[in-house]
Amino acid sequence: METQEVVHTALENIPDETGIHFTWEDNPMAGAIGQLKLTFKNREIHFNTEIKKEILEHQLPNLEIAAKNKQPFLLVAHYLRPKIKTELRKRNIAYLEKNGNIFINHENWFILIDANKPVDLAKETGNRAFTKTGLKVVYLYLTEKNWLNKPQREIAKKTGAGLGNISNVNHGLQKEKFLLKVNRTQKQLNNKQELLEKWMKAYAVTLQPELKIGQFRFADEKNYIHYRKIQLDENTWWGGEPAGDILTDYLRPGELTLYTNNTRTGLMKQFKLIPDPKGNVRIFKAFWNTVNQQEQNTVHPLLVYVDLMNTGDNRCYETAQMIWDKYLAHEF
């Protein structure tokens, strides 16, 4: 099985000089995929194990709950991004990567290896619906469902995609049963919630990093505290935490997110921003072609939901659920 292959590769990549020995065991407890028996200096621990390709920020709260319910718990993953590994260590969730990197802090055992290079992830099956271009088209389908049955030439113009890409995207969605033909001329989305989950994961990894214009701080920090007083033009929208705050009045933003069609230089002048890699203002290029998203100068609630879920923060997670219930649930 592929899952066991991941485990065995990971165990082979743990350096012998650590003196750690792992054995994979079947017959796991309910809800776990398997157990790993760790032997070190004549002591044993049996870890209830889950295996994932990777973990994204929005999955952390549920993973933390699972870890508490299945103690002692260990996550095995093909690959974990540095930020995710930091979060796992903060939450004291043991993990093992396919490359042999490992973290365990259990009782009086502390093991940390983080020097091994990542093992290349297997490529997706080539589904064009979840490429950078495909994600823009799927976003249009999810947020403006009337576009699904418009001519492909119009969809291509709306999304900035090549005409041939629209057919490839639709084929990719059909392949995974996300798009169904109702009749000769009409199509409809299927399993929309599952599609959104997949879009959310691919967006965080594939598209959003390419959209980042930069990270900044305000020359006057009062603008951060009173961000709602900032006048946005028709080409700039609040996203992420400030949008969540605006839509729910529940969240106090830890950082500000903007999406825009304006230039970096123009934004710095307009909002008196100073480039700062640790700044609390993140700005991304808008990837849609719509004049105005919301009356409140926020991006579409779906993108707000996605941004909040991808933070991995519990308060953001709660805010995302409120947005889901108020703005999105009836569409899914």
Rank of each mutant, 00 (worst) to 15 (best):
residue 115 A to N: 13
residue 89 R to M: 15
residue 38 L to W: 12
residue 120 D to L: 03
residue 300 H to A: 04
residue 182 V to D: 08
residue 109 W to E: 03
residue 300 H to K: 04
residue 88 L to M: 15
residue 321 Q to L: 13
residue 145 K to F: 12
residue 241 E to Q: 15
residue 77 A to D: 02
residue 186 Q to N: 13
residue 94 A to H: 15
residue 123 K to Y: 02
residue 125 T to P: 04
residue 127 N to R: 01
residue 184 R to W: 03
residue 80 L to C: 01
residue 52 K to E: 03
residue 8 H to M: 07
residue 168 N to Q: 11
residue 253 P to A: 06
residue 4 Q to E: 02
residue 10 A to G: 00
residue 313 D to I: 05
residue 322 M to R: 14
residue 164 G to L: 05
residue 294 Q to K: 07
residue 113 I to R: 09
residue 126 G to C: 03
residue 285 K to T: 13
residue 290 T to K: 15
residue 53 K to I: 04
residue 273 L to C: 08
residue 145 K to H: 11
residue 270 Q to E: 09
residue 57 E to R: 11
residue 226 H to M: 06
residue 157 K to C: 02
residue 266 G to V: 04
residue 3 T to V: 11
residue 264 R to K: 15
residue 72 P to S: 11
residue 155 I to C: 04
residue 326 K to Y: 11
residue 232 L to M: 09
residue 200 M to D: 08
residue 104 I to V: 15
residue 43 R to W: 13
residue 273 L to Q: 08
residue 2 E to Q: 07
residue 61 P to R: 06
residue 75 L to I: 14
residue 299 V to A: 09
residue 301 P to Q: 00
residue 144 E to P: 10
residue 205 V to R: 07
residue 48 N to K: 00
residue 188 Q to P: 00
residue 301 P to S: 00
residue 146 N to H: 14
residue 69 N to G: 05
residue 278 K to R: 13
residue 94 A to L: 12
residue 120 D to K: 06
residue 145 K to Y: 11
residue 278 K to G: 07
residue 302 L to I: 12
residue 227 Y to M: 05
residue 277 P to D: 06
residue 215 Q to E: 10
residue 99 N to K: 10
residue 156 A to E: 01
residue 108 N to T: 14
residue 63 L to M: 13
residue 240 G to I: 02
residue 26 D to E: 09
residue 58 H to R: 12
residue 259 Y to G: 10
residue 205 V to K: 09
residue 275 P to K: 03
residue 203 Y to F: 15
residue 148 L to M: 02
residue 60 L to R: 05
residue 193 Q to P: 01
residue 278 K to L: 11
residue 34 G to T: 14
residue 31 G to P: 12
residue 126 G to D: 06
residue 199 W to N: 01
residue 161 A to K: 03
residue 67 A to N: 03
residue 20 I to D: 02
residue 76 V to H: 06
residue 122 A to E: 13
residue 119 V to T: 15
residue 22 F to H: 08
residue 299 V to K: 07
residue 257 T to V: 15
residue 141 Y to N: 05
residue 215 Q to K: 13
residue 51 I to S: 01
residue 35 Q to I: 13
residue 302 L to H: 00
residue 266 G to C: 04
residue 298 T to I: 02
residue 97 E to Q: 10
residue 305 Y to R: 00
residue 179 L to M: 08
residue 152 Q to L: 13
residue 42 N to L: 14
residue 33 I to P: 03
residue 76 V to M: 11
residue 253 P to H: 10
residue 131 T to P: 00
residue 139 Y to P: 08
residue 159 T to F: 05
residue 250 Y to S: 12
residue 195 L to Y: 03
residue 227 Y to C: 03
residue 237 W to Y: 10
residue 226 H to D: 12
residue 269 K to L: 09
residue 293 Q to E: 14
residue 273 L to N: 07
residue 220 D to C: 03
residue 59 Q to A: 05
residue 210 E to D: 07
residue 71 Q to S: 14
residue 25 E to A: 13
residue 149 N to F: 11
residue 68 K to V: 07
residue 54 E to Q: 13
residue 124 E to V: 00
residue 90 K to A: 02
residue 222 K to C: 08
residue 107 E to T: 13
residue 46 H to K: 15
residue 198 K to N: 02
residue 142 L to Q: 04
residue 118 P to E: 06
residue 64 E to T: 15
